[in-house]
Design a protein around this nucleic acid. Structure first.
Length: 297
DNA sequence: AATACGTGGCT
DNA sequence: TAGCCAAGTAT
């Protein structure tokens, strides 16, 4: 027990956990026996992608590839196709590569050690701890955008969190119950609270289990003072858009796609060439012959 | 440390 | 409508 934690902070985890046990959404990765591989795949898919869009792709993915070895046995192109339109398709490539690494380094078993997880392609601070905590029940602070927002408000009294930093881990660790099972519950519970109650746009404070403990509420909901992170650039006419257009063509094609076909998709040459070069640099496209391209094999 | 990276729903 | 936002990671 950390006696330096203020009383209000010490009361947060029990309140969140009681609320979560009564209000958790029934999501696939919360089912008993879902398995570490399923959890890992779900975490890859959930990176910057809403739950509702992930669920159907996840079920398809796991029925086709129930183990890391099953995925590693197929070409990367199969992973990119199965990713469909989840977005950020490099994640499909990274997940395929991580499966190969799990087979080669860990005998096909998803590791439970944070450092081993961090060493896998496409796994960073969030995903490594999420897998260790949710798949293996290990006691680690798991920090995502929801967690950071809830802590910024309830503990920090701020409308929005500061930019992500290492201290976020320490802030979460200070709230984390000692008991591993309670800690795992709190990791999931505070994320869930941020996802469905303490939301970014219009928080539902009347339904919040920590409203009586919330520093932001106590201070009268002050507006955000700091510098806002720059908004994402316009998608229309962006390299991202053209990459998406080209990759969609590569995904649906049985045969390599010609330069002419790609030019027909996006006539303006400069943006088109930048996009194609980027896809190749990322390993999402490969040159198959003179002026023809496909997904990686 | 700042930036690039998809896609689609919501207000 | 245009912009915001979504269980981040790699460089």
């Amino acid at each position: 027990m950390n006696v330096t934690v203020p009383a209000a902070s010490a009361a947060i985890a029990p309140a969140v956990n009681a609320w979560f046990r009564a209000n958790a959404r029934d999501l696939p990765w919360r089912r008993d026996g879902f398995g570490a591989w399923g959890i890992l795949v779900s975490e890859f898919m959930l990176q910057q992608t809403p739950v509702a869009r992930v669920v159907p792709r996840l079920e398809e993915w796991l029925s086709r590839w129930p183990t890391p070895a099953a995925l590693a046995a197929e070409p990367a192109s199969a992973a990119v196709r199965a990713w469909a339109t989840l977005g950020y398709p490099r994640r499909a490539l990274w997940l395929h590569k991580a499966a190969t690494e799990i087979v080669n380094r860990h005998g096909g078993v998803v590791p439970g050690d944070v450092d081993a997880l961090l060493a896998l392609t496409g796994i960073g601070d969030y995903t490594a701890r999420a897998v260790a905590a949710f798949a293996y029940g290990h006691r680690h602070p798991v920090v995502d955008t929801n967690t950071r927002r809830v802590i910024a408000r309830a503990v920090g009294g701020q409308a929005e969190p500061a930019p992500p930093a290492r201290r976020d881990l320490a802030a979460m660790d200070a709230l984390l119950p000692d008991d591993p099972s309670e800690a795992a519950c709190f990791n999931a519970g505070i994320m869930e609270l941020g996802a469905i109650v303490c939301t970014a746009r219009s928080p539902f404070c009347d339904g919040c289990p920590v409203r009586e403990l919330c520093a932001w509420r106590a201070q009268g909901y002050p507006a955000y003072e700091g510098r806002r992170r720059p908004v994402q650039k316009k998608y229309e006419g962006s390299v991202r858009q053209v990459r998406g257009v080209i990759l969609a063509a590569l995904r649906s094609a049985e045969q390599p796609v010609t330069d002419a076909a790609i030019a027909a998709l996006w006539p303006e040459p400069s943006l088109r060439e930048t996009a194609l070069a980027g896809l190749i640099a990322d390993g999402l496209a490969v040159r198959r012959g003179p002026g023809t391209y496909s997904l990686p094999q």
